[in-house]
Computed example of a mutant assay.
Amino acid sequence: MLVLDTAHLPLAERAEAFHAVAAGESGSCSIEQERLDAGMWKRLEVWNFGPLTLFATHGTGMRIWRTPRHARFDSMNSVSVITQSTGAGRFVWNGHQRHVEQHDLVLAHKTAGYEYAWSGPGLSVAFMVDADLLGMPEHLVRAAIPLMSVSNLTPLLLHHIRALHRDADHISADPGAAAVGEATLALTRALVASVSTDRPVRRAVAEETLLPRILAYVRAYLSDPYLTPERIAKVHNISLRSLYRLCEEGGLSLEQWIIRRRLEGARRDLVAPEHAHRSIEAISRSWGFSNPSYFSRRFRQAYGVTPRQWRRFPPAASAG
């Protein structure tokens, strides 16, 4: 949901307007804008997913920082996960510095203070959650901050955040939005625990978050036609029987869940302007459907129209 676009404001008012909205949405902070007198621009979108808030900040470069002093004047004790979808960012915390490219993410704890910046045109997508709702001891969260790049769960959470942002308007309006937020927190807990030296915590969180991690893995490989239950079980070091039991306890059929997610991706791409040059068959293959007839049949069963009808008349198809 769009909350601010400074393009509609006089240049002299843009920085102050952005600061006021950003602080109101995410808490006390200091912000320094790039190109303040030569076309500074920001577009801020915010969505709520139950316990967490997702932010997308587009525009010219800036530097934002939070210190323990900011925290003392703010009731929010939050943890954030920050990504850079466009451009290159820079993260600084307690002497730890790193560049943030499009394949990276960083973890920030508000009371610990941090700085985040980028230069030139950019897009940063981040989510914030109350530290208590994350459910991890503060010392483990802080210890994990400089170790995010070494966890094999980082790509899964990054892919999840990108997918969440891509469909944020649709998902946030869905009755299941809070459940999506809870799944995101589970992945974040698993990521923090994965770099922890506390073995009991690591083991307990790994067991607690197994299903969200499996579903995140599946989302990341939906386009692979060789994604099978056997492969999923092997990657997560569990038996096929355990995989099916876990999914059943979670209230889902794994095969049907995979097909539904693939259909949703194909339906989105069929009407996306950037995919207008691609054939229906090419789009279906890119979402793991190797048989065009099977894809068309399942698409019609799910949405009441054929892929070709959806592509030609998406509003009418949506109504049906």
Rank of each mutant, 00 (worst) to 15 (best):
P229Q: 07
K234C: 08
L252V: 15
P212D: 03
A177D: 10
A190L: 08
I238F: 08
I214P: 09
L191E: 07
C247R: 06
E208M: 10
R189P: 07
P200W: 00
G181T: 01
G250K: 01
R202G: 15
V235K: 05
Y217T: 08
L227K: 10
S172N: 07
L215E: 11
L215D: 10
P175A: 09
S223V: 00
R199C: 08
P212T: 04
S242C: 04
L243V: 11
T197Y: 09
D174H: 08
E207V: 02
N237R: 15
R219A: 13
A204K: 14
R203C: 09
A186E: 08
A193H: 02
Y244K: 10
D198R: 02
I214S: 08
L243I: 08
Y244C: 00
V205C: 06
A206V: 04
V192A: 09
L252W: 05
R213I: 00
D198C: 11
D224M: 14
S194M: 14
A220T: 04
I171S: 13
E249Y: 10
V192S: 03
D169V: 06
A183V: 05
L185V: 10
R199S: 05
T228C: 01
T209Y: 00
I214T: 13
L227S: 12
Y226A: 10
G251C: 12
P229A: 12
A173G: 08
L252N: 08
L246Q: 10
P229W: 14
G176E: 10
I214C: 12
L210K: 12
Y226T: 02
V180E: 12
I238W: 01
E249H: 06
T184V: 01
N237T: 13
P175C: 01
P229R: 14
A173S: 11
A190W: 08
D169G: 06
V192E: 03
R245A: 11
A179S: 11
P200H: 07
T184S: 14
E182Y: 06
C247E: 00
A168I: 05
E249W: 07
I232W: 09
P175Y: 03
P225E: 14
H236T: 14
V201S: 02
I232H: 06
L210I: 00
E208P: 04
H236Q: 07
Y221E: 09
L185E: 04
I232Q: 04
V201N: 00
V205L: 06
P212F: 00
L187F: 01
A206T: 04
I214H: 04
L222Q: 05
H170G: 15
A183I: 05
L240C: 03
L243K: 08
C247H: 12
V180N: 05
A206G: 15
A204G: 02
A168Y: 08
T228F: 04
H170W: 11
K234Y: 06
G181K: 07
Y221A: 13
A216T: 03
L246P: 08
C247Y: 02
V218M: 04
D169E: 12
A178D: 13
D174T: 01
R241K: 02
P212G: 04
T188K: 03
V235H: 01
Y221H: 15
D174K: 00
L252K: 13
A179W: 03
D224T: 09
P200G: 06
R245H: 14
L187V: 09
A204N: 14
T197N: 12
L222W: 07
G251H: 09
N237P: 00
G181E: 02
L240E: 13
Y221L: 04
D224N: 15
L215V: 04
A178V: 03
I171A: 09
H236P: 12
A186Y: 01
R202I: 13
L211Y: 01
